Computed example of a mutant assay.
Amino acid sequence: MKYPEFRALEDRSGGSKADDLLTASITAFCSVARPAKSDAQQLEDLAVPLLPLTSPRVRRHAAAVLSELPHAPHRLIMALAEDDVDISAPILLRSPVLKTGDLIDIIRRKGLGHARAIARRTTSDPLLLDALHSFDDPALERTLAFQVSTDVETAAAPESERLRETRQALRELMLSTDIGQSDDQALADRLIDAALLDQTTQFQEEFARALDLSMESTVRIIGHGLNAELTIAFASLGLSAEASHLILTGLFGLVHKDLHSLRLFIQSYRQIDQEKARATVARWKIQENSAALRQKLREMAKDVENTARKVS
Protein backbone atom coordinates (compact mmCIF):
# COMPACT_ATOMS: atom_id res chain seq x y z
CA MET A 1 0.00 0.00 0.00
CA LYS A 2 1.97 3.01 -1.26
CA TYR A 3 1.49 6.71 -0.60
CA PRO A 4 -0.09 7.44 -4.01
CA GLU A 5 -2.81 4.90 -3.22
CA PHE A 6 -3.60 6.83 -0.05
CA ARG A 7 -3.65 10.08 -2.00
CA ALA A 8 -6.04 8.59 -4.55
CA LEU A 9 -8.54 8.01 -1.78
CA GLU A 10 -8.95 11.78 -1.41
CA ASP A 11 -10.91 11.81 -4.67
CA ARG A 12 -13.79 9.78 -3.17
CA SER A 13 -17.10 11.57 -3.40
CA GLY A 14 -20.27 11.44 -1.32
CA GLY A 15 -20.70 12.01 2.40
CA SER A 16 -18.13 13.70 4.59
CA LYS A 17 -14.79 13.80 2.84
CA ALA A 18 -12.92 13.24 6.12
CA ASP A 19 -15.21 10.33 7.04
CA ASP A 20 -14.78 8.72 3.64
CA LEU A 21 -11.01 9.18 3.64
CA LEU A 22 -10.50 7.75 7.14
CA THR A 23 -12.76 4.76 6.44
CA ALA A 24 -11.11 4.03 3.10
CA SER A 25 -7.59 4.41 4.52
CA ILE A 26 -8.20 1.98 7.37
CA THR A 27 -9.91 -0.44 5.00
CA ALA A 28 -6.88 -0.33 2.69
CA PHE A 29 -4.54 -0.94 5.61
CA CYS A 30 -6.60 -3.87 6.94
CA SER A 31 -6.65 -5.49 3.51
CA VAL A 32 -2.86 -5.93 3.60
CA ALA A 33 -2.04 -9.35 5.08
CA ARG A 34 1.41 -8.37 6.39
CA PRO A 35 1.72 -4.58 6.38
CA ALA A 36 5.21 -3.13 6.48
CA LYS A 37 6.30 -0.45 8.93
CA SER A 38 6.05 2.05 6.09
CA ASP A 39 2.37 1.11 5.59
CA ALA A 40 1.64 1.71 9.26
CA GLN A 41 3.53 5.02 9.15
CA GLN A 42 1.61 6.19 6.09
CA LEU A 43 -1.71 5.33 7.72
CA GLU A 44 -0.68 7.10 10.90
CA ASP A 45 0.43 10.24 9.05
CA LEU A 46 -2.84 10.37 7.15
CA ALA A 47 -5.33 9.25 9.79
CA VAL A 48 -4.25 11.04 12.97
CA PRO A 49 -4.81 14.58 11.59
CA LEU A 50 -8.18 13.44 10.20
CA LEU A 51 -9.60 12.26 13.54
CA PRO A 52 -10.77 15.69 14.79
CA LEU A 53 -12.60 16.20 11.47
CA THR A 54 -14.49 12.90 11.42
CA SER A 55 -17.82 11.91 12.95
CA PRO A 56 -18.09 9.86 16.17
CA ARG A 57 -19.66 7.03 14.15
CA VAL A 58 -16.63 6.67 11.90
CA ARG A 59 -14.15 7.00 14.80
CA ARG A 60 -16.10 4.35 16.72
CA HIS A 61 -15.94 1.99 13.76
CA ALA A 62 -12.22 2.69 13.28
CA ALA A 63 -11.61 1.82 16.93
CA ALA A 64 -13.54 -1.45 16.59
CA VAL A 65 -11.67 -2.48 13.43
CA LEU A 66 -8.19 -1.60 14.72
CA SER A 67 -8.69 -2.90 18.25
CA GLU A 68 -7.43 -6.43 17.47
CA LEU A 69 -4.54 -5.57 15.14
CA PRO A 70 -1.08 -6.03 16.70
CA HIS A 71 0.54 -4.04 13.88
CA ALA A 72 -1.80 -0.99 14.05
CA PRO A 73 0.06 2.34 14.26
CA HIS A 74 0.80 3.25 17.88
CA ARG A 75 0.06 6.98 17.64
CA LEU A 76 -3.29 6.33 15.92
CA ILE A 77 -4.24 3.75 18.56
CA MET A 78 -3.31 6.20 21.34
CA ALA A 79 -5.37 8.97 19.71
CA LEU A 80 -8.41 6.70 19.49
CA ALA A 81 -7.83 5.42 23.04
CA GLU A 82 -8.01 8.96 24.39
CA ASP A 83 -11.26 9.74 22.57
CA ASP A 84 -14.57 9.64 24.43
CA VAL A 85 -14.94 6.31 26.17
CA ASP A 86 -17.94 5.26 24.04
CA ILE A 87 -15.59 5.46 21.04
CA SER A 88 -12.38 4.22 22.64
CA ALA A 89 -13.87 1.25 24.53
CA PRO A 90 -12.84 -1.47 21.98
CA ILE A 91 -9.27 -0.14 21.94
CA LEU A 92 -9.09 0.09 25.73
CA LEU A 93 -10.49 -3.41 26.15
CA ARG A 94 -8.53 -5.31 23.51
CA SER A 95 -5.74 -3.50 21.68
CA PRO A 96 -2.43 -5.40 21.96
CA VAL A 97 -0.64 -2.23 20.87
CA LEU A 98 -1.27 -0.57 24.26
CA LYS A 99 1.34 -1.49 26.83
CA THR A 100 1.28 -0.90 30.58
CA GLY A 101 2.84 2.54 30.33
CA ASP A 102 0.33 3.60 27.69
CA LEU A 103 -2.61 2.41 29.77
CA ILE A 104 -1.38 4.16 32.91
CA ASP A 105 -0.89 7.39 30.97
CA ILE A 106 -4.42 7.12 29.58
CA ILE A 107 -5.83 6.52 33.06
CA ARG A 108 -4.04 9.56 34.47
CA ARG A 109 -5.11 11.83 31.63
CA LYS A 110 -8.67 10.63 31.05
CA GLY A 111 -9.88 9.50 34.49
CA LEU A 112 -12.43 7.08 35.84
CA GLY A 113 -14.50 6.35 32.71
CA HIS A 114 -11.45 5.12 30.77
CA ALA A 115 -10.13 3.32 33.86
CA ARG A 116 -13.37 1.30 34.13
CA ALA A 117 -12.98 0.18 30.51
CA ILE A 118 -9.29 -0.69 30.99
CA ALA A 119 -10.20 -2.71 34.09
CA ARG A 120 -12.02 -5.16 31.82
CA ARG A 121 -8.71 -6.16 30.20
CA THR A 122 -7.10 -9.31 31.56
CA THR A 123 -3.95 -8.15 33.34
CA SER A 124 -1.75 -9.11 36.26
CA ASP A 125 0.64 -6.18 35.94
CA PRO A 126 1.05 -4.71 39.45
CA LEU A 127 1.70 -1.18 38.18
CA LEU A 128 -1.50 -1.12 36.14
CA LEU A 129 -3.50 -2.73 38.95
CA ASP A 130 -2.20 -0.12 41.41
CA ALA A 131 -3.28 2.67 39.07
CA LEU A 132 -6.75 1.15 38.76
CA HIS A 133 -7.14 0.48 42.50
CA SER A 134 -6.18 4.11 43.22
CA PHE A 135 -9.67 5.24 42.15
CA ASP A 136 -11.29 3.23 44.98
CA ASP A 137 -14.36 2.89 42.77
CA PRO A 138 -16.85 0.10 43.66
CA ALA A 139 -17.81 -0.65 40.02
CA LEU A 140 -14.16 -0.79 38.98
CA GLU A 141 -13.29 -3.05 41.91
CA ARG A 142 -16.09 -5.46 41.00
CA THR A 143 -14.73 -5.66 37.45
CA LEU A 144 -11.21 -6.39 38.69
CA ALA A 145 -12.51 -9.07 41.06
CA PHE A 146 -14.35 -10.73 38.17
CA GLN A 147 -11.21 -10.62 36.02
CA VAL A 148 -9.23 -12.37 38.74
CA SER A 149 -11.84 -15.13 38.93
CA THR A 150 -11.60 -15.80 35.17
CA ASP A 151 -7.83 -15.45 34.66
CA VAL A 152 -7.19 -19.22 34.45
CA GLU A 153 -10.00 -19.81 31.97
CA THR A 154 -8.88 -16.90 29.78
CA ALA A 155 -5.26 -18.03 29.76
CA ALA A 156 -6.33 -21.43 28.46
CA ALA A 157 -8.37 -20.05 25.54
CA PRO A 158 -6.99 -20.30 21.95
CA GLU A 159 -6.49 -16.54 21.72
CA SER A 160 -4.63 -16.38 18.39
CA GLU A 161 -7.45 -18.07 16.50
CA ARG A 162 -10.07 -15.82 18.11
CA LEU A 163 -8.07 -12.74 17.18
CA ARG A 164 -7.74 -13.92 13.59
CA GLU A 165 -11.47 -14.55 13.27
CA THR A 166 -12.32 -11.20 14.84
CA ARG A 167 -10.04 -9.34 12.46
CA GLN A 168 -11.55 -11.12 9.47
CA ALA A 169 -15.10 -10.40 10.61
CA LEU A 170 -14.50 -6.74 11.30
CA ARG A 171 -12.53 -6.31 8.07
CA GLU A 172 -15.44 -7.78 6.09
CA LEU A 173 -17.82 -5.40 7.82
CA MET A 174 -15.53 -2.46 7.03
CA LEU A 175 -15.43 -3.46 3.37
CA SER A 176 -19.20 -3.92 3.25
CA THR A 177 -21.25 -1.52 1.15
CA ASP A 178 -23.58 -1.19 4.13
CA ILE A 179 -21.28 1.29 5.86
CA GLY A 180 -23.34 4.39 6.51
CA GLN A 181 -25.97 5.99 8.66
CA SER A 182 -28.87 4.16 10.22
CA ASP A 183 -32.29 5.72 9.69
CA ASP A 184 -32.06 7.15 13.22
CA GLN A 185 -28.31 7.46 13.79
CA ALA A 186 -28.72 9.17 17.17
CA LEU A 187 -30.71 6.18 18.44
CA ALA A 188 -28.19 3.78 16.90
CA ASP A 189 -25.33 5.60 18.64
CA ARG A 190 -27.08 5.45 22.02
CA LEU A 191 -27.78 1.73 21.68
CA ILE A 192 -24.23 1.00 20.50
CA ASP A 193 -22.76 3.01 23.37
CA ALA A 194 -24.85 1.23 26.01
CA ALA A 195 -24.08 -2.20 24.54
CA LEU A 196 -20.33 -1.68 24.11
CA LEU A 197 -19.96 -0.13 27.57
CA ASP A 198 -21.82 -3.08 29.15
CA GLN A 199 -24.60 -0.84 30.47
CA THR A 200 -27.24 -3.57 30.30
CA THR A 201 -30.05 -1.79 32.12
CA GLN A 202 -29.55 1.42 30.15
CA PHE A 203 -29.58 -0.53 26.90
CA GLN A 204 -32.78 -2.36 27.83
CA GLU A 205 -34.52 0.90 28.80
CA GLU A 206 -33.43 2.69 25.62
CA PHE A 207 -34.44 -0.29 23.47
CA ALA A 208 -37.83 -0.58 25.19
CA ARG A 209 -38.57 3.12 24.59
CA ALA A 210 -37.58 2.87 20.94
CA LEU A 211 -39.81 -0.19 20.37
CA ASP A 212 -42.61 1.18 22.58
CA LEU A 213 -42.76 -2.14 24.41
CA SER A 214 -42.67 -3.05 28.08
CA MET A 215 -39.38 -3.88 29.75
CA GLU A 216 -40.53 -7.47 30.21
CA SER A 217 -41.19 -7.89 26.47
CA THR A 218 -37.94 -6.16 25.58
CA VAL A 219 -35.83 -8.40 27.84
CA ARG A 220 -37.52 -11.45 26.29
CA ILE A 221 -36.73 -10.21 22.77
CA ILE A 222 -33.08 -9.56 23.64
CA GLY A 223 -32.74 -13.06 25.10
CA HIS A 224 -29.26 -14.50 25.54
CA GLY A 225 -27.90 -14.37 22.01
CA LEU A 226 -28.61 -13.62 18.35
CA ASN A 227 -32.22 -14.53 17.49
CA ALA A 228 -34.82 -13.75 14.81
CA GLU A 229 -36.97 -11.49 17.00
CA LEU A 230 -33.97 -9.34 17.93
CA THR A 231 -32.90 -8.81 14.31
CA ILE A 232 -36.49 -7.98 13.35
CA ALA A 233 -36.57 -5.42 16.16
CA PHE A 234 -33.30 -3.88 14.92
CA ALA A 235 -34.65 -3.71 11.36
CA SER A 236 -37.91 -2.10 12.54
CA LEU A 237 -35.84 0.74 14.02
CA GLY A 238 -33.94 1.24 10.76
CA LEU A 239 -30.58 0.18 12.19
CA SER A 240 -27.90 -0.60 9.63
CA ALA A 241 -26.21 -4.00 9.57
CA GLU A 242 -23.09 -2.28 10.89
CA ALA A 243 -24.94 -0.83 13.89
CA SER A 244 -26.72 -4.12 14.56
CA HIS A 245 -23.43 -6.02 14.48
CA LEU A 246 -21.77 -3.63 16.93
CA ILE A 247 -24.74 -3.88 19.31
CA LEU A 248 -24.72 -7.68 19.14
CA THR A 249 -20.98 -7.71 19.80
CA GLY A 250 -21.46 -5.49 22.85
CA LEU A 251 -24.32 -7.61 24.19
CA PHE A 252 -23.09 -11.12 23.52
CA GLY A 253 -19.44 -10.95 22.47
CA LEU A 254 -18.27 -12.21 19.08
CA VAL A 255 -21.49 -13.69 17.70
CA HIS A 256 -20.09 -14.21 14.18
CA LYS A 257 -16.96 -16.30 14.69
CA ASP A 258 -15.90 -16.59 11.08
CA LEU A 259 -16.11 -14.65 7.85
CA HIS A 260 -18.80 -16.88 6.37
CA SER A 261 -21.23 -16.42 9.27
CA LEU A 262 -20.79 -12.64 9.17
CA ARG A 263 -21.52 -12.59 5.44
CA LEU A 264 -24.67 -14.63 6.02
CA PHE A 265 -25.77 -12.23 8.75
CA ILE A 266 -25.26 -9.16 6.56
CA GLN A 267 -27.05 -10.76 3.60
CA SER A 268 -30.01 -11.99 5.66
CA TYR A 269 -30.30 -8.73 7.58
CA ARG A 270 -30.46 -6.67 4.39
CA GLN A 271 -33.31 -8.85 3.15
CA ILE A 272 -35.56 -7.90 6.08
CA ASP A 273 -38.26 -5.50 4.88
CA GLN A 274 -38.44 -2.57 7.29
CA GLU A 275 -42.19 -2.06 6.92
CA LYS A 276 -42.87 -5.74 7.58
CA ALA A 277 -40.54 -5.60 10.57
CA ARG A 278 -42.47 -2.61 11.93
CA ALA A 279 -45.74 -4.47 11.41
CA THR A 280 -44.33 -7.41 13.37
CA VAL A 281 -43.33 -5.14 16.27
CA ALA A 282 -46.81 -3.57 16.13
CA ARG A 283 -48.30 -7.08 16.51
CA TRP A 284 -46.09 -7.64 19.54
CA LYS A 285 -47.48 -4.42 21.01
CA ILE A 286 -51.08 -5.56 20.36
CA GLN A 287 -50.34 -8.92 21.98
CA GLU A 288 -48.76 -7.16 24.93
CA ASN A 289 -51.79 -4.87 25.33
CA SER A 290 -54.18 -7.81 25.00
CA ALA A 291 -52.33 -9.72 27.70
CA ALA A 292 -52.39 -6.67 29.97
CA LEU A 293 -56.12 -6.22 29.32
CA ARG A 294 -56.85 -9.87 30.11
CA GLN A 295 -54.89 -9.57 33.32
CA LYS A 296 -56.80 -6.41 34.25
CA LEU A 297 -60.16 -8.13 33.56
CA ARG A 298 -59.11 -11.06 35.72
CA GLU A 299 -58.22 -8.70 38.53
CA MET A 300 -61.54 -6.85 38.17
CA ALA A 301 -63.49 -10.12 38.19
CA LYS A 302 -61.64 -11.22 41.29
CA ASP A 303 -62.43 -7.91 42.99
CA VAL A 304 -66.13 -8.27 42.13
CA GLU A 305 -66.12 -11.85 43.45
CA ASN A 306 -64.44 -10.78 46.69
CA THR A 307 -66.92 -7.90 47.13
CA ALA A 308 -69.88 -10.29 46.57
CA ARG A 309 -68.54 -12.66 49.21
CA LYS A 310 -68.20 -9.85 51.72
CA VAL A 311 -71.80 -8.69 51.08
CA SER A 312 -73.19 -12.22 51.46
Rank of each mutant, 00 (worst) to 15 (best):
M1N: 05
Y3Q: 15
E5A: 09
F6I: 13
K17V: 02
T23E: 09
A28F: 15
C30F: 04
V32M: 07
R34P: 01
P35C: 06
A36S: 14
D39R: 06
A40K: 13
A40H: 00
A47K: 01
A47W: 09
L50I: 09
P52Q: 01
P52N: 05
R57M: 00
R60K: 06
A64V: 08
V65Y: 00
P70E: 08
H71Q: 07
A72G: 04
M78E: 04
E82S: 14
V85Y: 07
D86Q: 10
R94V: 05
S95I: 02
V97W: 01
T100F: 08
T100C: 01
I107Y: 08
R108Q: 13
G113S: 14
A115E: 04
R116N: 12
I118C: 08
R120Q: 02
T122E: 01
S124Y: 03
L129K: 04
D130K: 08
A131Q: 06
L132V: 11
D136Q: 13
P138F: 02
E141Y: 05
R142Q: 06
Q147S: 12
Q147H: 12
S149C: 05
V152A: 15
V152D: 15
E153A: 12
A156L: 14
T166S: 14
L170K: 00
R171S: 07
L173D: 10
L175R: 15
D178H: 07
I179C: 13
S182F: 04
D183E: 09
D184F: 01
A195W: 01
L196F: 05
L197D: 00
Q199H: 09
Q204P: 02
F207W: 03
A210K: 12
A210V: 11
L213G: 09
T218K: 11
R220N: 13
G223F: 02
N227P: 12
E229L: 15
I232T: 10
L237E: 05
L239E: 04
A241W: 00
L248R: 07
T249P: 03
H256A: 02
D258C: 04
L264T: 14
Y269W: 03
Q271Y: 10
I272M: 00
Q274F: 04
R278C: 08
V281M: 15
I286Q: 00
I286T: 09
N289Y: 13
N289G: 06
L293N: 11
Q295F: 11
V311Q: 14
